[in-house]
């Protein structure tokens, strides 16, 4: 049952515009050298953080299609009638969303790192920190999508909600990407906390939005 839900989310994620956040991620990464200049030492120092900001802004794009279409079209109600809990639906959405978003973003980290002049160890640190952090980012995106679904101007509101909530993940993720080492366990802990808590927050939000 949960496998069916995950497959549906993955298909919806890949079907429409999976490349959009990835291209956005690359564009933001490409803007950084234009903004701060092409000094390799400077870029090497801020590259990890720049990648994280690019990932964070890219994570905003899919939010509107994560929960709201299913609420408006009655899919969430039809699932609830079948005795599937909202928490399970949200968990499936998180897994499906990450599968459609995470691996592609990690792949795009390779060209993005080149744009920022990150070399071997810097590149592997960046990929590793995004691999650890993107599940938390996906969980946060689904939770924010559930919290804002059904509201007017949900897209703008979602941005205002997601970016501050992502600050802990950004701090430890960017620090892990730049220095590695001690920040990784903390980033992992924050990401795990988000993944563990988001299904319940999203489930409650879906129930509360039901009319």
């Amino acid at each position: 049952m949960i496998g069916l839900l995950i497959r549906r989310e993955l298909r919806r994620g890949l079907g429409g515009s999976a490349w959009l956040p990835v291209v956005f991620f690359l564009v933001v990464a490409a803007l950084v050298p234009f903004a701060v200049g092409s000094d390799p030492r400077l870029l090497g120092r801020i590259g990890g953080g720049a990648l994280w900001i690019a990932a964070l802004t890219a994570a905003l794009l899919p939010i509107e299609r994560l929960v709201e279409p299913d609420r408006a079209d009655g899919v969430l109600d039809q699932l609830a009638i079948r005795g599937i809990s909202e928490d399970a639906i949200a968990a499936a959405k998180i897994v499906g969303h990450w599968l459609a978003f995470g691996p592609l973003l990690l792949l795009a980290t390779l060209p993005a790192s080149m744009l920022l002049g990150l070399d071997g160890p810097g590149l592997s640190r960046a990929v590793a920190s995004l691999a650890v952090g993107t599940p938390g980012l996906a969980a946060l995106a689904v939770a924010v999508a559930a919290l804002t679904s059904g509201l007017a101007r949900a897209g703008a509101l979602a941005g205002l909600l997601l970016l501050p909530l992502a600050v802990p993940l950004l701090i430890f993720g960017a620090s892990a990407a730049s220095d590695g080492g001690s920040a990784f366990p903390l980033e992992g802990a924050v990401s795990l906390l988000l993944v563990a808590g988001a299904p319940f927050v999203s489930g409650a939000a879906i129930r509360a939005a039901r009319t």
Binding site: G15, D73, G74, D77, Q78, I81, R82, G83
Partner: peptide
């Protein structure tokens, strides 16, 4: 018992 509901929403993936 289990129920089945038809309302004014489609709940079918359009694509």
């Amino acid at each position: 018992v289990r129920v089945a509901l038809v309302d004014d929403r489609r709940a079918l993936d359009g694509e």
